[in-house]
Computed example of a mutant assay.
Amino acid sequence: MTTHIPAAAKIVADLKARFFPTPTYRQLQLEFDLLLEQRRANLRQGRQQEVRGLLVVAPSGAGKTTLVARVLRQHPSGLRMLTEGEERADIVSMVVPSPATPKGVGLDMLEALGYPLRRDRSAHIIWQLVKTQFAQRQVLFLHLDEAQDFSRHNNHNDRHAVISTLKSLTQSPQWPVGLILSGTPELLDLVNMDAQLARRLKPVEHRPLKTSVDGGMITAALRQYAAAADITLDDALCKPRFVHRLVHAADYCFGILVEMICEAIGEVLLAGEDILSTKSFVTCFSRRSGCPEGLNPFVVEDFLALDVRRLLQPEPGPGNQGRPR
């Protein structure tokens, strides 16, 4: 089996680098294009109007980071991302550092903009410098990923300071910047603290998967990834019963589901086989979770009772009573 590892690992890595467009992706793409063209129209007319933004919310593993990155980095108009040595940037994209204090985030942003501070300054001055840098570089949009960390590590006053700072970016009379905030559902609590900020953000929800709604998309993904790996797809994997198991095993998150498809294909290749079957997913889930067969959603009859996010769960039995939750 070890002789197959390098080839299998490369194929799985290539598969995970592929992008599968979803309805949520197309919605986000549409909403961003509308905002972008409105901003460009205002710039052509010399108007500096308040800029609206986007809010992308989804549980961990849903694929929101990949989704936003694809929309911004693969835009057909060739948007300029912040790059060292380049003066202009249409988009500044960064992960919110943890702990996400207003001052700390501002300092990280100045560092990314190539404007590190040599002495201590207040949060207010730091963000004024950020705004100046945005205007000089003509930044159109700021994307902050994992933005829920603003609410995790700050007290009430600091959270309000974050909201005021973010809102002020969109209202700057000299050079307004549109916000794209992405994060877990905790982010909603922060945004909803201020009705004015909430009004400026168009929500795009990466909703949980539903077999009844998304079954066709999921079977299409199974077929496309299997074809990309040049292996055969067992017809049983396109049946609603298996798709339901797969959706639950992925905790209803599309990003995790795609990972599992890729890793199950890896199990096929490691075994020197050429058919993607239920057996491949049984092995894949076991390797991912470290759980015994009695807690594997591709094996257990009552698979909906399983908590698929937990690792190394012991199988219920003598001395270990209780149903898995």
Results as ranks from 00 to 15, higher is better:
302 D>P: 06
304 L>K: 11
138 Q>N: 13
307 D>T: 13
137 R>M: 06
74 Q>A: 09
45 Q>E: 10
239 K>L: 06
231 I>R: 05
90 D>N: 15
189 D>E: 12
86 E>T: 10
111 E>K: 10
284 C>E: 12
200 R>T: 06
44 R>W: 00
149 D>L: 13
310 R>E: 15
234 D>G: 07
232 T>S: 11
23 P>H: 07
120 D>A: 03
319 G>N: 07
149 D>K: 13
135 A>C: 13
173 P>W: 07
201 L>K: 00
28 L>T: 02
293 E>Y: 11
14 D>Q: 15
40 R>T: 10
45 Q>A: 04
145 D>M: 05
256 I>M: 01
306 L>F: 05
48 Q>L: 10
237 L>V: 00
22 T>A: 02
224 Q>C: 07
168 S>P: 03
219 T>G: 01
65 T>A: 09
99 P>G: 13
245 R>Q: 05
111 E>V: 09
14 D>A: 15
97 P>I: 06
185 P>Q: 04
137 R>P: 06
285 F>I: 05
106 G>H: 03
125 I>H: 04
281 F>V: 12
173 P>K: 03
227 A>M: 11
110 L>Q: 07
273 E>G: 11
181 L>V: 01
273 E>H: 07
224 Q>H: 13
66 T>V: 09
222 L>A: 05
238 C>L: 06
161 A>R: 09
254 F>C: 06
248 H>W: 02
294 G>Q: 12
152 R>E: 12
153 H>N: 12
152 R>M: 14
168 S>R: 08
130 V>C: 14
141 F>Y: 08
17 A>I: 02
171 Q>H: 08
221 A>P: 03
58 A>M: 11
220 A>N: 05
145 D>R: 04
61 G>P: 10
271 A>Q: 00
146 E>L: 06
276 L>I: 08
34 L>H: 06
122 S>G: 05
247 V>D: 02
92 V>Y: 00
223 R>N: 09
5 I>C: 02
199 R>S: 14
139 V>R: 02
16 K>Q: 15
9 A>D: 10
260 M>N: 01
117 L>K: 00
245 R>P: 02
98 S>T: 14
88 R>G: 12
99 P>K: 13
129 L>D: 11
94 M>N: 01
187 L>D: 06
56 V>K: 04
247 V>I: 08
37 E>M: 14
74 Q>M: 05
190 L>G: 08
68 V>S: 02
117 L>F: 03
321 Q>L: 15
316 P>W: 06
39 R>W: 12
90 D>L: 13
